[in-house]
Amino acid sequence: MSLNPARVGHRYAPFTYEVSREKVREYAEVTGAATAAHGADPRVVPDADVPVPPTFAAVFTLALERTLHADPELGAHWNLVHGGQSFAFARPLRVGDVLVCTPHIVDITSRSRMDILTFAVDVTDAADDAEVVRAESTVIFFDDEAA
């Protein structure tokens, strides 16, 4: 099954994501980014002093279940691989951020037996609408839908 090229340009409804200290700790530990601050007592080390790894942005911008796979008109399935990823930061992520994420489909290119989909997520701060990060992902969907 191929993806629907008419979905290029489609913008999904924005969703919010709150950056929480414990989720950041869990992510930092598994990606080799943990520092003493991640395991520290919050009464001693305030949230502002907990470094949020840049790639933590993947946790909310690659939430495919709530975007691509929830779109009945796109035809997304799970026989896929991640082809590329970029993040451009206007400012670092912070524990306590409430972020507004707006995904949209940038491109769909069909090749033999695969579709290459590019989607972007614009992330802004819910408090002041300022830009925080833009994520762009390339996902390769294989036509052979064994999944």
């Binding site: 080799g32 980014a33 470094p51 949020v52 790894p53 790639t55 590329g84 970029s86």
Partner: peptide, 21 residues
Amino acid sequence: SAAVTEWAGGPEHVRSLSASF
């Protein structure tokens, strides 16, 4: 990214990352 961040001196100094898998 963790290796880059350590070299940079913290996440606030990482302006962008892009990767081709």
